[in-house]
Design a protein around this nucleic acid. Structure first.
Lengths: 229, 229
DNA sequence: TGATTGTGTGTATTTTGGACACTAAGGCAA
DNA sequence: TTGCCTTAGTGTCCAAAATACACACAATCA
């Protein structure tokens, strides 16, 4: 804080790594760039931070403007400040990651923003800037976080079956889990509420639908309880 | 990335939360502000990010300029971007946290920077800006991180006794640990190298001195081994 | 030389994690 | 209507890890 204010400043942007889940795969929401540099290439949604908005709000605004998404889970990831990130000038970006339920949001994102599309994490196109690196860090963070915070619920519809929940964990962690052990653990956590309802229109025995009990979770966090999986 | 470059930009700074450990306590390195706002108050070392330096380098440079510290463990913490952080104008700060061995660095910091001083974490003065919040987040991060990454070694001299190591963990975690269980676990990790030497000039049985085996640690990280404590 | 102080060590118990396979329910098609 | 297909739902045993716990040893000092 020793210097005065006329110093040249890096540009400051936010970028969002938006994860979505559907039946088949863990996906990422990208937008196609319209202008140089990297015109035509896919990139993370993001943009400049305005003077009258917090970083969180800037991320939400850009996400909404570019993809139509609103009210999603959004958390700061890391700030990237390498010198050559942008070929035009010095740009520092505060990266965020978001989790959305693809079933509910798919149509919206597809219509609002003509140039937004979902890609399987395993088959990403070449990304603009250093966005591949940002995605790598986000994936790592998600894998780490999901192990000790019940965070992934954001990727599912409000009511979900235990099998859906298990599939989600498997896709994030990249390995298979044992059904019985998974159910034991996740139910023992005490953050799942049995809605009493079951699946409809499935060609097999209908599974129970649960929902995440946020109140119970918050109580347990206050009590200092851990949530390893 | 939709806008052009003449937009007004927030100022961008870095701030460092520097943890140090001595026999008595976990400490924080603060500097006294010379000018308004918050003149005379204690604050985190930090300053503006230049165009020709990465964020990491900016943090290291400011740390060195303001406190004389160099070559310390330094890692990005979080980026703070609330609107009213600085009463003069919009300032976004990328916060870092550092771990240093107070025994080795105490004298240096005290001489190089006339206005730097160490404070016990439990008896901090009122801090400038939102620095108290930044410290809170850093403390939390340190507590979380120390549990699954052997990070705290940075706080000790190169050669240390198991008791010193245990005290460090206890101070960071804020609770007492069982001596035998602690030693079992930490030795089982396989990242401690017995130097064969012992303490000097102590009024009791001299303890063995160990040092952190970074090579072994890196090998184990590659092999995907966990380090919970 | 014995008082003081911190070092160094092992076992028994409890808790947790992981492997493992069958029956139940519902829709569908022959 | 019956049998088939698909997914739901459930419990036990074993291994590994976490925890609780107490005493003899070495070095210095008075």
């Amino acid at each position: 804080m020793a210097h005065s204010y006329e110093y040249p400043r890096p540009a400051l942007t936010v970028d969002c790594v938006v994860f979505g889940l559907d039946d088949s795969d863990l996906k990422l929401l990208l937008i196609r760039r319209g202008r140089e540099p990297f015109a035509g290439q896919w990139a993370l949604p993001g943009g400049f931070v305005h003077l009258d908005e917090t970083l969180d709000n800037a991320a939400r605004r850009e996400l909404h403007e570019e993809t139509g998404l609103a009210k999603v889970f959004l958390e700061q990831l890391y700030t990237f400040g390498e010198l050559d990130r942008d070929p035009r000038e010095r740009v520092v970006t505060v990266a965020y990651y978001a989790l959305v339920n693809l079933g509910e949001h798919k149509a919206k994102a597809a219509t609002d923003a003509s140039e937004a599309a979902w890609f399987s994490l395993s088959k990403l196109p070449k990304l603009a800037f250093d966005h591949a690196e940002i995605v790598r860090v986000a994936k790592q963070r998600l894998q780490g976080k999901v192990r000790y915070v019940p965070i992934g619920f954001e990727l599912l519809p409000q009511k979900f079956t235990l099998t859906q929940l298990q599939r989600m964990y498997e896709k994030i962690l990249g390995r298979e889990l044992d059904k019985r052990n998974f159910r034991k653990k996740v139910l023992a956590m005490g953050v799942l509420h049995d809605t009493g309802t079951t699946q409809k229109d499935v060609a097999h025995r209908a599974a129970r639908l649960y929902q995440f009990d946020e109140a119970a979770y918050k109580r347990m966090v206050k009590a200092g309880i851990n949530f390893e999986l």
